[in-house]
Design a protein around this nucleic acid. Structure first.
Length: 116
DNA sequence: GCAGTGACTAGTA
DNA sequence: ATACTAGCCACTG
């Protein structure tokens, strides 16, 4: 089944640390399917709620919670993220400069220091 | 196999 | 800054 393909995405999502977010493209790249950002979204869409995958840490490239075609999961997503300490601006976007997760996260600390 | 669809992105206007 | 466009590619009917 195609699930095995999505499993890679799920594993990648699981790597995102608490209190951080990653973009769909980032997840795809991390999973070894660079450029398949859309499929990440599709995979998460088909993801069972009880899978244990922190899907709520995945946002689009703008740091925004991508609009769903249906459902209220976007509200849940925001609640879960705020519960982890992720802040949203007035437009409902995450401050990527502070919360975007970098694989190398080499500049994380530097950013922390420079952080406005 | 073709056409429509989408929880995306990077470009362009 | 926002709005629209064209690539993108796997899934579905």
């Amino acid at each position: 089944m195609s699930q095995s393909r999505w499993k890679k995405f799920y594993e990648a999502v699981r790597k995102v640390p608490r209190g951080r977010v990653a973009s769909y493209g980032q997840i795809a790249e991390l999973a070894g399917f660079d450029g398949h950002a859309r499929q990440v979204g599709y995979a998460l869409h088909a993801l069972p709620a009880k899978s244990g995958v922190p899907w709520h840490r995945v946002v689009n490239a703008k740091g925004e919670i991508s609009p769903r075609s249906a459902g209220d999961s976007h509200e849940l997503q925001r609640r879960l993220l705020e519960a982890e300490g992720v802040e949203f601006d007035a437009k409902g976007r995450v401050d990527l400069k502070r919360f975007r997760w970098d694989e190398g996260h080499r500049n994380s600390e530097r950013r922390m220091r420079m952080q406005k």
